[in-house]
């Protein structure tokens, strides 16, 4: 009897929390690329929530759903982006700023990458 109730409560909790939990993983969160150079941040939060892009804007035409797929390819380069592939499909200078400008908007660098991995502190706490 007690076991039944525990199961029931757990089930209810899952039922209620489930959708909420699912909403959080509605998109891929932050993707930190490290190939071909270390430290490029793609923020799903920015592109999906703030800019209102749909999943199928990029998936699976430009990027596979599975993270790391694009990185594994040889043509995942700035040259390729300039030719309109990957990020360059939108970042062409008209839809969004060109991938040939504002380098450090997306390139967070080794510093940003390490911060994302929690290897170094956020800059505000570096030194007092």
């Amino acid at each position: 009897m007690r076991l039944f109730f525990i199961c029931l409560i757990c089930g209810l909790v899952l039922l209620i929390a489930g959708p909420g939990f699912a909403e959080d993983v509605d998109h891929g969160g932050d993707i930190h690329f490290k190939q071909p150079v270390v430290g490029v941040l793609f923020s799903h939060t920015l592109h999906v929530e703030e800019l209102g892009l749909e999943c199928d804007s990029c998936h699976e035409g430009l990027f596979a759903y599975e993270a790391g797929t694009a990185e594994a390819k040889d043509d995942f380069t700035m040259k390729s982006l300039a030719e309109g592939n990957y990020c360059g499909a939108c970042h062409d200078g008209s839809t969004a700023f060109s991938s040939e400008t504002r380098c450090a908007v997306c390139h967070e660098g080794v510093k940003g990458y390490k911060r994302a991995l929690g290897l170094i502190n956020a800059p505000e706490h570096d030194r007092k």
Binding site: K111, P123, E124, D126, R127, K128
Partner: peptide, 17 residues
């Protein structure tokens, strides 16, 4: 006072301890 303090970079924000 870090030598790059005037540059306003994260690495030289405040006093070196």
């Amino acid at each position: 006072v870090p030598v790059y303090y005037s540059l306003g970079v994260n690495e030289a924000r405040g006093l070196i301890e």
